[in-house]
Design a protein around this nucleic acid. Sequence first.
DNA 1: TATGGGGCTTCCAGTCACGGGAAGGTCAAC
DNA 2: GTTGACCTTCCCGTGACTGGAAGCCCCATA
Lengths: 131, 131
Amino acid sequence: MNIKYVATRAGLPAKTIRYYEEIGLITPLRQANGYRAFRESDLHKLAFIGRARSLGFTIEDCRALLALYEDRERASADVKALAAAHLARIEAKIAELQAMKRTLSGLVEACAGDGRPDCPILQGLGQGHCC
Amino acid sequence: MNIKYVATRAGLPAKTIRYYEEIGLITPLRQANGYRAFRESDLHKLAFIGRARSLGFTIEDCRALLALYEDRERASADVKALAAAHLARIEAKIAELQAMKRTLSGLVEACAGDGRPDCPILQGLGQGHCC
DNA sequence: TATGGGGCTTCCAGTCACGGGAAGGTCAAC
DNA sequence: GTTGACCTTCCCGTGACTGGAAGCCCCATA
């Protein structure tokens, strides 16, 4: 399997796959002409990583998850701890964004949005009544 | 006013203030010894930028907002458009994170989290029943 | 046999918004 | 005169890629 085929099947850009090799997440074989030769197991790993990434796990999380995935002696508690920590990060980020959203939508609603210069948004930013 | 004083009053690290000068957001004067000499107006701009940043505006947004702030002929519609676009980005990000959160919390809840290797989280990531 | 086009390779540079740290000048207090 | 806090510039690193250049490789068509 060449890189473009694998990229299509895993739903990842070829560039990203080369990057994942560079940082040691996968180690595809090489053909005589220097082209990468992907095995089914490489494709499977890439799809795994892609799904983990789409859930927001960092690359280092993915590395750890892959290691657990391939360890038949793993304890599910380790996996759960990783995922729960990530979940907490996501929830914190959501809370942060929702706070921004509240403030910002208040300002946006207060702004007439016409041709005049008066603007509660700029006033809020300038005078600190916003955060 | 020296940089540390301004940093304290604006609530920004000195490093960040130097960076903002480097990219042209502010242009403090210089003392004879080479130290930066901040005016009240510099401090005011820095506080403005800090508040905009804390609402998630990018640096380029801040540059545009500052320009509008200092333009007495501005139309509040321009400010509102900027802020509304940013608000939409925030809302999109929240939705994305909430989707992650739903999937991930489902997986985490399904995982026993004990010493056994069986793990729905890894299964979900490996078999694509997660996204 | 030439050539054209697509695919593959590596390497370098850029992204965003800083943060860390080195090397060295300056200032006020003791 | 000597600390010690403050200031300066400069350069590198972050995360996870993305874009682009330069150059091989392979196959099909004229």
